[in-house]
Nucleic acid binder design. Structure first.
Lengths: 177, 177
DNA sequence: TCGATCTATATCGGACCAATATAGATCGAC
DNA sequence: GTCGATCTATATTGGTCCGATATAGATCGA
């Protein structure tokens, strides 16, 4: 699922600038399971334009930098749908926190507790952010995705709250040896 | 959490070749929340060697390609632990499936059902794989990580089984319009 | 015995991210 | 009221990483 495909998908929901596409990842519910940086969005839009999958209109405003507003073309929409008909790439969930827990025995107990606290705070924040924007979810797809995210975050929080003592206690035992 | 740090972590558990490090991601429980390809592992080990964080001994076998067995040095272990004391990068969970669900209304109902089936199968496979290797988990860290993975996968399966009808039914309604 | 799979290293092109540069607009604090 | 901070907006660059590919002998099953 490359950045070009992601941009096409977002543009099926309406015209946008590169900047606005990036904002959608930060502000709205898009961010949790897909993301892209400016460094890949702008080249992606450029290439999609060259290939005829999107069109641009440059809104030259007075006293403002140009807005390049991108619109998806019929060919772009066809291409996007075609990409959804092919087998999807697998999920990749990368978690430095989880990896770090494998090495709890190498760390002071306070650091392990600190990691757990920081991670729980991080997930609580994501859950709160999701709930904030879930209220505005109007399509069934958005509701489904919000629900999916909630289910995952709540499961993580629940697991950590009921099992953190095990890794913390074990770590203390190691330190006491 | 770059590939060099990941390699150092794995080498704290024992010597290994680049090939064996990669195998750990595929076969053992490591794979679920961290991964790396050959294209990044070999250059990482090369650079770690140059920087003195690992050492190599080349086991020149007869009738076999050389095995380059890497060992972590005291400086390497110190560096790894230091990296765990700094704030960890956030999780990134990329899911083409979840993104695709946002566009269910653009797809035939059969494709949405097919995506759901394929995704459920994928997650069931990961859960089975995790359970297979969870039995061999000897450290508390490994048990914790296995438990974490199970909690996430089970939450996903539970959500999909109880909510898939909503996105499928909605999709059917769209198609009927 | 022959193809498939496995061990094992290595490289290359392309995709992607994080950081940085630029620049005028707006907005809050003092 | 003005000055720094933040926001809108585009763009580039260095470096990291992945996926595919190449090589090559070993082993194993049909």
């Amino acid at each position: 699922m490359d950045v070009r495909t992601i941009c096409l998908g977002i543009l099926t929901r309406g015209d946008a600038t590169g900047y606005e596409i990036k904002k959608l990842f930060e502000d709205d519910g898009y961010q949790h399971f897909v993301e892209a940086s400016f460094g890949s969005i702008y080249p992606a839009l450029q290439r999609l334009t060259d290939e005829g999958y999107v069109s641009v209109r440059s809104e030259t405003q007075e006293k403002r930098p140009d807005r390049k507003v991108y619109s998806i073309t019929p060919q772009g929409k066809a291409r996007f749908i075609a990409s959804l008909l092919k087998p999807l790439p697998e999920d990749r969930h990368r978690s430095p926190f989880v990896f770090a827990m494998l090495f709890a025995d190498l760390l002071p107990q306070s650091r392990v507790s600190g990691m757990l606290d920081a991670y729980i705070t991080q997930i609580e924040g994501k859950l709160a952010h999701l709930d904030e924007h879930a209220a505005a979810s109007k399509s069934e797809g958005e509701r489904f995705v919000s629900g999916f995210g909630r289910a995952v975050y709540i499961a993580i929080l629940n697991f950590l709250r009921t099992h953190r003592a095990e890794i913390e206690k074990h770590q203390a035992a190691q330190a006491a040896e």
